[in-house]
Design a protein around this nucleic acid. Structure first.
Lengths: 147, 147
DNA sequence: TACGCTTGAATAGCGTGCTATGCAAATTAT
DNA sequence: ATAATTTGCATAGCACGCTATTCAAGCGTA
């Protein structure tokens, strides 16, 4: 039997993530935000002044990816990189007033996209779905890489 | 209450898809393949000689994305672009022997990645999970774009 | 037939992910 | 205290996704 893409978790995950990203991008574009910037802001709204390394750990992206995202965010006036008070190698990342003001509208946009995506599911189904994604993420993170 | 990323479908979808892509990439790299190439090959293994436009429709990516992926695949000796027999604007995309030979190992690699990801789930849970992803995908594809 | 619209594909430019390097500051070991 | 290692970040280079633009070939219609 052929490899059926609509029965492949990986294929579906990719397709679903592209649709989520596209929908979110459309919704936050008017705010001057892009998806990776939003994701980063989620952490900084929760706790300002994190280092790049802390953001890397919390968002599970590579250090180089975060460095580039932060560069674009600084360019766009969302963050400021300040010298770290105690570690001369590090910087602390601080939100600008502009970025602080975006928390409400941006999280509302993300919630709206989630609502559209999950529209066909009951509360119970939504909860199971989120739990399952967390389980799958954990499985892949703890699996040893093949050879 | 704060926007909780581990309870956001979009955030989890993104994270999960990155992990899937990374795992698949590691597994098919020895075959000389990258994820988007594998996805494209899935369609061509099923039916050779498709046009770029047909691939775009089946994989739900933008035309420009597919054009670039096909260019890389031609560069890597996986496909050949031949003039379309009846439409002077189009080309038909044909697999090389090399690409044909990769079907077994590549689909096995993808299946292995899916297995790792779904390891913690029962058969029933896996089935529900795939169904739900298909439902969510459909919901986002049919939702009108905001404003 | 000729003009105009549609359609298949390429290209440019950018965001976001990755790996691989390089460098300077900090830390550890000798 | 000096040397070696580790750690924080930047940069280069590439895959892949997107939007926007351009061009040529096909198709319609006046």
């Amino acid at each position: 039997m052929p490899f059926e893409k609509s029965r492949s978790a990986g294929y579906l995950a990719n397709h679903m993530a592209r649709l989520f990203a596209h929908g979110l991008a459309q919704r936050i574009k008017p705010l001057g935000l892009a998806p990776a910037q939003f994701m980063t802001l989620l952490e900084l709204w929760r706790e300002d002044g994190l280092t790049q390394g802390e953001l890397v750990a919390r968002l599970d992206v590579e250090q180089a990816t975060m460095a580039n995202t932060l560069t674009r965010m600084a360019r766009d006036g969302l963050i400021e990189r300040r010298p770290h008070p105690t570690d001369g190698r590090a910087q602390s990342i601080h939100l600008t007033d502009k970025a602080i003001a975006l928390e409400g509208p941006a999280t509302a946009a993300a919630a709206a996209q989630n609502d559209v995506a999950l529209a066909g599911l009951s509360e119970e189904e939504r909860s199971v779905f989120l739990d399952t994604m967390n389980t799958v993420i954990h499985a892949m993170k703890s699996a040893p890489m093949p050879k």
